[in-house]
Nucleic acid binder design. Structure first.
Length: 589
DNA sequence: GCCGTTTTCGGCCCGACTGTTTTCAGTCG
C-alpha cells in the first residue's frame, strides 16, 4: 500500500471520527498524520519493515499499529468498523460549504438524514430552520452550498483524480498480460474537474485486471462489468472506468477515449469537406478508417497533415484549424520552468525550512526560488511581522552566500487588507526582491470594493505579482467579485504580473482567464504556493492550466532565467529602466 | 490521537465572521 493510499485511509478515519463526535484534538491527529504521509519522501512500507513507522511526525504507537495493519493486509478493521457506524452519506455532507461535523451530526440526529438528497429536501421543506441553533439563513446557506456542489456533481478535482489515476496505472501495469496502461478522457486532457478516471489497458493473452481491480482495497463497489470494461467507485467516491483493448488496437482506442467528442468532431469536419480533402492526402475519406489503422496519435495527426495536438488542446475550441495554420504555440513543458516564485516555509504556515525548500527546488532542476510568507495580519497562517521578515531576509542572504548555482529571492505574500491598504509599510516592501499581493479576507465585498482593492494593489509601486487573483477554491468557494476584464486591463496598464496559482485546490487564474491574459499582453507566473517540499510538484497542475490556455514558455515569467525575471518586475523597471540590473543590485552576493 | 517533558498528563492554532440569540456556537482559513 502506498503512502497516498495510507493518507486517504487516515483522512477518512479522521472524518468519520469527527462525525462520531470524537474529541477535536484526536480528529486533528488523524488528519495531521494523513498529511504527513501524503508528503513523506520515503515509502511508509520501507519504514514499517525497519520498525520505524513512529519516526513519521504525528504518528505514535496507536496510529503506527493502524498503519501497520493497512500495510500488511491492505485493510483496516478500525476503518471498516467506522464505516459500519457512520452512514457514508454523512461524509458527503461535510463537503457542503458552511456545514461542519457538528451541524451534520445535529441534522442527522434530529431528522435522520443520511444523504445529500435528503438534506436538500429537508432544507426545501424548511425543516432545518426548526433545529436548535439553526435558522433561515443557515438553511439558505445549505441550499447555496448544495447548489455549488451540484455544479460539480460527481466531479472530482484534478488534484485527486490525477494521483489516483497514476496509482492505478502503476498497479495495473504490474499485472501479467498487461502491455500498457494510460489515463484517458478528461483526466488526460487535464480538465480541472473530471467526472471519472478513465484508464486504458492494453492486453495480450489472459489477464486478471478486472478481478484484481474489483477487489482492490480502494474500491467500494463495482458499478458495472462487461467483457472489456469495468466500472468502479472508490471509497472516496471517485468513479473509475477501466477499458481493456488488444495491444495492437491501443492507439486508436486511446485517441477515441481521450476525446473530447468536440475535438473528434472537429477532426471529422476537417477531413470531410474542409479546406483539405482527405483524398488529396491519400487518406481514406472518413476518420473511422483512418483511426482504424494508425499505431500512434502522432502518426494519425501527421497523416491528416497536422502537427501533433496535445491532449490539453483537444476541446473542440478551434484547435484543429489553429494547428493547421500554425497558430498554436509550442506548449509549455515542465522543463521550461526555471523556478518557483511563491512558496512558504516554517517561518509562517509552511512545513519545511528555507534550506529544505531550496534543496527540493534544486532537486527539481530550478535555478531560483522566491520565499514569500504571509504577512502579519493573517494570524492563522502565522503571518510575519517586520522583525521576523528582516530576520528571514538575513537567513536568506546567508544561504545565498553558500549557494553556487542557485538564488533564493527574499519576498512576501502581503495581504491586501479590506480597505485596499497593504499589510506592510512601503519601505519594507521596497527592500525585498519580490512582492506578491493577495486577498485573504473580506471575501464577501462587492465587486466595486474588491476591484478597488485589487486596483490599489496593482497601482502600488512595490507590488510585482497578484497572487491567486480570483480567490476561488475549486468546488468549495466561488471567486470573490472580480471583474476579470478590468483586472486584465489594469495588469496590462500597470505592468503587474498575474499568477496562475498551481495548487490543485485553486488553479487560479483558470485556463480561460490565462488565455485572455495573453491576449491583453499580461505576463503570467505559474507558482505553486507550496507549503512543503512535496507540493512543489503542484507545478504540474499549473503547467496543465497554462497548456489548456494555449500558452507557451514565452508567456510565462518563470520560464526565464533569473535576470529575465528580475527585469520583468515592476520594481526593477522603475529602478533600472529597460536595461539589465546592475550587478550590485542583483539579489546575490 | 501525539508530544514533550514538568516522566504521566496537560497542551495542542486562534481570531474573524456569521447566524442565532441576547452571550455564544460553529465554521473557516
Amino acid at each position: 500500500m502506498t503512502n497516498l493510499e495510507l493518507s486517504w485511509a487516515l483522512a477518512e478515519m479522521g472524518d468519520l471520527l469527527e462525525l462520531k463526535g470524537e474529541e477535536a484534538f484526536k480528529v486533528r491527529a488523524y488528519h495531521r498524520a494523513a498529511r504527513a504521509l501524503e508528503h513523506l519522501e520515503e515509502e511508509a512500507a520501507g519504514l514499517h519493515v525497519r520498525g520505524e513507522l513512529e519516526r513519521i511526525p504525528g504518528v505514535g504507537k496507536n496510529l503506527a499499529k493502524k498503519i501497520a495493519e493497512l500495510l500488511e493486509t491492505g485493510r483496516s478493521t478500525f476503518l471498516e468498523q467506522l464505516r459500519q457506524e457512520v452512514p457514508p452519506g454523512l461524509r458527503d455532507m461535510l463537503a457542503v460549504p458552511g456545514l461542519g461535523a457538528k451541524s451534520v451530526r445535529l441534522i442527522h440526529q434530529h431528522l435522520g438524514i443520511t444523504t445529500l438528497e435528503e438534506l436538500e429536501r429537508a432544507a426545501r421543506e424548511r425543516k432545518i430552520r426548526r433545529l436548535p441553533g439553526m435558522g433561515s439563513k443557515t438553511e439558505l446557506a445549505i441550499l447555496r452550498g448544495l447548489d455549488m456542489l451540484k455544479e460539480h456533481r460527481d466531479r472530482v478535482p484534478l488534484g485527486i483524480a490525477r494521483p489516483l489515476g497514476r496509482l492505478f496505472c502503476r498497479q495495473i501495469a504490474a499485472l501479467p498480460g498487461v502491455t500498457r496502461v494510460e489515463v484517458a478522457g478528461s483526466l488526460r486532457r487535464g480538465r480541472p474537474m473530471v467526472g471519472d478516471v478513465d484508464l486504458l489497458v492494453g492486453v495480450k493473452g489472459p489477464t486478471e485486471v478486472k478481478e484484481v481491480m474489483a477487489r482492490h482495497p480502494q474500491v467500494k463497489e463495482v458499478l458495472q462489468e462487461e467483457a472489456n470494461r469495468l466500472s468502479l467507485r472508490t471509497w472516496a467516491g471517485v468513479k473509475v472506468e477501466i477499458f481493456l483493448v488488444p495491444d495492437d488496437k491501443f492507439a486508436p482506442a486511446w485517441m477515441y477515449l481521450t476525446g473530447s467528442r468536440a475535438h473528434l468532431e472537429e477532426l471529422k469536419r476537417f477531413t470531410a469537406g474542409g479546406r483539405l480533402s482527405p483524398e488529396s492526402l491519400g487518406l481514406p475519406s472518413n476518420l473511422e478508417e483512418v483511426a482504424a489503422s494508425f499505431s500512434s496519435e502522432e502518426e494519425l495527426y501527421s497523416r491528416l497533415g497536422l502537427p501533433y495536438i496535445i491532449p490539453e488542446w483537444r476541446e473542440g475550441r478551434g484547435e484543429v484549424l489553429a494547428a493547421r495554420e500554425g497558430r498554436l504555440p509550442a506548449p509549455l513543458s515542465p522543463e521550461d520552468i526555471k523556478g518557483d516564485l511563491h512558496v512558504h516555509t516554517c517561518y509562517s504556515d509552511g512545513l519545511h525550512t528555507i534550506r529544505e525548500m531550496v534543496e527540493a527546488a534544486r532537486a527539481r532542476g530550478y535555478r531560483y526560488l522566491a520565499i514569500t510568507e504571509h504577512s502579519r495580519s493573517l494570524v492563522v497562517a502565522r503571518g510575519l511581522n517586520v522583525e521576523q521578515l528582516l530576520a528571514q531576509r538575513e537567513e536568506i542572504a546567508r544561504i545565498n552566500r553558500e549557494l553556487e548555482d542557485f538564488v533564493v529571492l527574499s519576498g512576501i505574500e502581503v495581504d491586501i487588507l479590506p480597505d485596499g491598504c497593504l499589510d506592510l509599510e512601503d519601505d519594507i516592501l521596497a527592500s525585498l526582491d519580490i512582492v506578491i499581493a493577495s486577498i485573504h479576507s473580506g471575501f464577501n465585498q462587492t465587486e466595486e470594493q474588491i476591484m478597488a482593492r485589487l486596483e490599489a494593489a496593482m497601482r502600488h509601486p512595490w507590488v510585482d505579482i497578484i497572487g491567486h487573483p480570483t480567490g476561488r477554491m475549486l468546488g468549495r468557494r466561488p471567486p470573490y467579485a472580480v471583474n476579470l476584464e478590468r483586472l486584465l486591463e489594469l495588469a496590462a496598464e500597470t505592468g503587474t504580473i498575474l499568477e496562475i496559482n498551481a495548487s490543485p485546490d485553486r488553479l487560479d487564474l483558470d485556463e480561460d482567464a490565462a488565455r485572455r491574459a495573453k491576449e491583453h499582453g499580461v505576463i503570467l507566473a505559474v507558482n505553486t504556493d507550496a507549503h512543503d517540499t512535496a507540493r512543489l510538484d503542484d507545478m504540474g497542475y499549473g503547467i496543465t492550466v497554462a497548456r489548456r490556455g494555449w500558452l507557451g514558455a514565452q508567456d510565462i515569467l518563470n520560464t526565464r532565467e533569473l535576470d529575465g525575471v528580475l527585469k520583468a518586475l515592476k520594481r526593477n523597471k522603475r529602478k533600472w529602466g529597460q536595461g539589465s540590473p546592475p550587478r550590485e543590485e542583483r539579489p546575490r552576493p
